[in-house]
Design a binder for these strands. Structure first.
Lengths: 352, 352
DNA sequence: ACACGGGATGTTTGCGTAAACATCGTCTGC
DNA sequence: GCAGACGATGTTTACGCAAACATCCCGTGT
């Protein structure tokens, strides 16, 4: 050999190179059959204690690691779950992913990430076709967009799927936080404080959850007999909240704003600060998500708490059920939200 | 068969059940050998155009998807990269993961997430052993802690590894943002504005990057002949920044604070607002990370921008190089940072 | 004492793919 | 017109594992 440095790399008769030892090697070392090694490896109990010890010793000596490709080929199971999500992910998506990863790990499944760079239909379709070749037993989709309704995006037949945040409940299993309830809680909170109406900075029109929040806000206002101001559409970013905040802050009759997420609420509050309209004395602001930082905003933000961890956990529960029973179920599971009242909301000045 | 509902499930002679069609099925359908199907599947060009078309048509007809387990078993490559990270991840880690996922996808590799619930040594060791059985060609570790120095945590021999944020440059390939440069930029910025000294809210002692920021801050003060105030240690959270902010804000001689991340800076500013010490008129504040929201804080935060995307990209570049050449290299790659000056910093009142 | 049962262990086989090698037919150059 | 070459395609094989089946051995009941 030309390249040799450590001397350990003796390049013996079996020049298996980078492939590690196989069960056969362990079996030879322990003086048993490879099937016995397999039994030990899989924790089956019909192996004599002494034999088991010998096998384990041989495994450690050789540094044996099971080859999951061979195992998957034999069993037809990969013990892995694919997650499709946008590249530039939001706080909520990350928290959901976090919970999904944790729940999967506990069930002995690993997570394969399939990022989608842009929310264009072509990109998503590409991710799906890439996924077709991936080694996964099921898929979680965290793409909040209508794109999934496109007929040309199809999942492999028989592949279990769970979707977060979508309207596809009739075709797939869907898990989501109760967007409508959250938006109602936020709007009612402001109305109960005495505000005549509640202005709304919505999320993008392409987002299902944004639409649901907006519709619930509208319904709540209608039910209360309050007027429905014109909707301003943001893109979830603090910057878009800031821009709309400048607009709303210039209108003296605006006393209560419900932003569809915490970042936009942050931007709104920055605009109000700049315009000299104190929060909550002159304008009350409510957000959505309850991000870690929202309690440290100035002032601390009243917002709707979403239990992303629970959503992620339920996703995996439902998906594993489908994987292990091969039963295809549809329907939507809703996780409740709750209002967290902090210091960005107060009765309007006229009421005090 | 007892269970039959759709009628489509005819349970034909070949009761292959949930396994999809294989290359042999496609070959039969197209009237070629399975090897030819393999060649088409792998995009080799020594196949007649007409034959290729027939094979592709057969693939589509049968809904053929390559079995990656079999492919991995044969080739010894999984085309997948494992990422080990904490469950509750920070902004920066998520951005890095994002970049890693994107860069991997472009190179045709998928990402396998291995979450670690708690930063305890046992948890990490568990993740590593779990990982040993995972089907990955290389590993990226995004765990900023001394834990990795534990001798009992060992990676499988010959497994390429890249580490983000660590001191292990002598043993592994390390990629990281230039923490020292960033902290120096932040500290110098405040000194140049005329502040007598700069107080520091540090990250946790267990974090390498926090330590480097703190040391660089101290060195910069020393170089400038400025006194070195006592260090306050936070835990990256806005809440910890808030607590320390209450302490510092109560001291009239404190006019400049360098927080080791944006969240803690946010907490500091909240405390200063509560104490009636205007930012930046009475106290200047600088953060670290340049999170999306920091430009919408009140006031917009002066902070150090880290190029997480570049860090992630370089990780993958280095890792793929190691995977494909099997050369084991060590050393540290540093990505520059830059100061983003916004409105949370100004000369001290005494200078104006 | 002997048949029987059951636990421990071994042997055979095939999962789907791609490398290595084999074969076949056609085209080129002289 | 024929040897040689080369491109297209087929055949064989092994990757590492675990299910299915086979075998062996020892203890137990009658």
């Amino acid at each position: 050999m030309t390249i040799s440095s450590t001397g350990q790399n003796i390049d013996a008769p079996t020049r298996r190179a980078s492939r590690g030892p196989s069960m056969a090697d362990v079996a030879r070392e322990a003086g048993v059959s490879s099937q016995t090694v397999s039994r030990v490896s899989n924790g089956q109990n019909n192996v004599d204690a002494a034999t088991r010890d010998r096998v384990i010793a041989a495994m450690q000596l050789l540094g044996y690691r099971p080859n999951s490709a061979a195992r998957a080929l034999k069993t037809g199971r990969f013990r892995s779950i694919g997650v499709i999500m946008f590249t530039l992910s939001t706080f909520g998506n990350m928290r959901t992913l976090d919970a999904i990863a944790t729940a999967s790990a506990q069930a002995g499944y690993s997570i394969t990430l399939i990022p989608v760079a842009l929310p264009t239909q072509g990109e998503v379709a590409g991710a799906f076709s890439r996924l077709s070749e991936q080694a996964v037993d099921g898929i979680v989709i965290i793409i909040e967009a209508h794109i999934l309704d496109r007929a040309d995006i199809t999942l492999p037949d028989g592949m279990p799927v769970v979707i977060v945040d979508s309207d596809a409940g009739s075709r797939y299993t869907v898990v989501d936080a109760d967007q409508a309830q959250g938006a109602r809680l936020a709007t009612e909170h402001l109305l109960k404080l005495g505000h005549r109406s509640v202005w709304h900075i919505a999320g993008p029109r392409s987002s299902f959850s944004a639409i649901r929040r907006t519709e619930s806000w509208r319904t709540t206002l209608n039910d209360a007999g309050a007027p429905t101001p014109e909707i301003l559409y943001g893109d979830w970013s603090a910057e878009s909240g800031y821009q709309h905040g400048l607009t709303l802050g210039a209108q003296p009759d605006v006393t209560a704003i419900f932003a569809a997420n915490d970042q936009m609420a942050l931007g709104v509050m920055r605009a109000l600060h700049e315009l000299g309209r104190p929060v909550p004395r002159s304008v009350s602001v409510v957000g959505f998500d309850d991000t870690e930082e929202s309690s440290s905003f100035w002032p601390p933000l009243t917002t709707v708490h979403q239990d992303f961890s629970e959503v992620g956990r339920l996703c995996i529960t439902a998906l594993l059920h489908e994987i292990e029973t091969t039963a295809h179920e549809t329907g939507t599971t809703i996780v409740p939200t709750r209002l967290v009242v902090r210091e960005s909301t107060a009765p309007p000045a006229s009421v005090r």
